Simulated assay, not measured.
Amino acid sequence: MVDYKKMYFALFNAVTTAINQLQDAQRKGESEYIEAQDISLTILPTSTDDETKTTKKPQATE
């Protein structure tokens, strides 16, 4: 008989390990970015900013 409980725990442990590794990598990358001396930030327009500038409102017709 297949031991589903054992399979579930093995999968759970593998997923948990993968999540922890991804979180550690993210923290490391963020730390390196924050500690960098040559930080230059550029504010980019959001898609809603672009749409409001280019979208014309329909004019009322009588």
Rank of each mutant, 00 (worst) to 15 (best):
1 M>N: 07
2 V>E: 12
2 V>M: 08
2 V>Q: 11
3 D>A: 03
3 D>V: 01
3 D>F: 02
4 Y>R: 09
4 Y>F: 14
4 Y>L: 14
4 Y>M: 05
5 K>I: 08
6 K>N: 06
7 M>F: 08
7 M>Y: 10
7 M>Q: 15
8 Y>L: 08
8 Y>I: 03
9 F>P: 00
9 F>L: 13
10 A>W: 01
10 A>V: 02
11 L>W: 06
11 L>I: 06
11 L>M: 09
12 F>N: 06
13 N>H: 09
13 N>P: 00
13 N>A: 15
13 N>Y: 10
13 N>S: 14
14 A>Q: 04
15 V>A: 05
15 V>T: 04
15 V>G: 01
15 V>I: 12
16 T>D: 12
17 T>A: 13
17 T>K: 12
17 T>C: 02
18 A>Q: 04
18 A>R: 07
18 A>C: 02
18 A>E: 04
19 I>Q: 05
20 N>W: 01
20 N>E: 04
20 N>P: 00
20 N>L: 04
20 N>S: 10
21 Q>I: 12
21 Q>A: 15
21 Q>F: 08
21 Q>R: 14
22 L>Q: 10
22 L>A: 13
23 Q>S: 11
23 Q>W: 03
23 Q>T: 12
24 D>P: 00
24 D>R: 09
25 A>E: 05
26 Q>A: 15
26 Q>W: 10
28 K>M: 03
28 K>R: 12
28 K>N: 06
30 E>M: 12
30 E>Y: 10
31 S>G: 04
31 S>R: 11
31 S>Q: 11
31 S>D: 06
32 E>D: 06
32 E>M: 13
32 E>C: 04
33 Y>P: 00
33 Y>F: 13
33 Y>I: 08
33 Y>E: 02
34 I>E: 10
34 I>F: 10
34 I>D: 06
35 E>Q: 14
35 E>A: 15
35 E>C: 04
35 E>H: 11
35 E>L: 14
35 E>N: 15
35 E>K: 15
36 A>K: 09
36 A>S: 15
36 A>F: 04
37 Q>V: 07
37 Q>R: 11
38 D>H: 11
38 D>V: 02
39 I>K: 15
39 I>G: 03
39 I>M: 07
41 L>Q: 08
41 L>F: 09
41 L>I: 12
42 T>I: 12
42 T>Y: 07
42 T>D: 02
43 I>P: 00
43 I>L: 13
44 L>A: 13
44 L>R: 07
45 P>H: 01
46 T>Q: 09
46 T>P: 01
47 S>E: 13
47 S>L: 15
47 S>P: 01
47 S>K: 14
47 S>M: 14
47 S>T: 14
47 S>H: 12
48 T>N: 06
49 D>C: 01
50 D>Y: 09
50 D>S: 07
50 D>F: 11
52 T>D: 02
52 T>I: 14
52 T>P: 00
52 T>M: 07
52 T>V: 14
52 T>S: 11
53 K>R: 14
53 K>I: 05
53 K>H: 07
54 T>I: 09
55 T>E: 01
55 T>D: 00
56 K>M: 11
56 K>C: 03
56 K>Q: 13
56 K>G: 05
57 K>Y: 07
57 K>I: 10
57 K>N: 11
57 K>W: 05
58 P>Y: 03
58 P>L: 08
58 P>K: 10
58 P>H: 04
58 P>I: 04
58 P>G: 02
59 Q>F: 10
59 Q>W: 05
60 A>G: 04
61 T>E: 06
61 T>F: 06
61 T>M: 05
62 E>N: 12
62 E>F: 13
62 E>S: 11
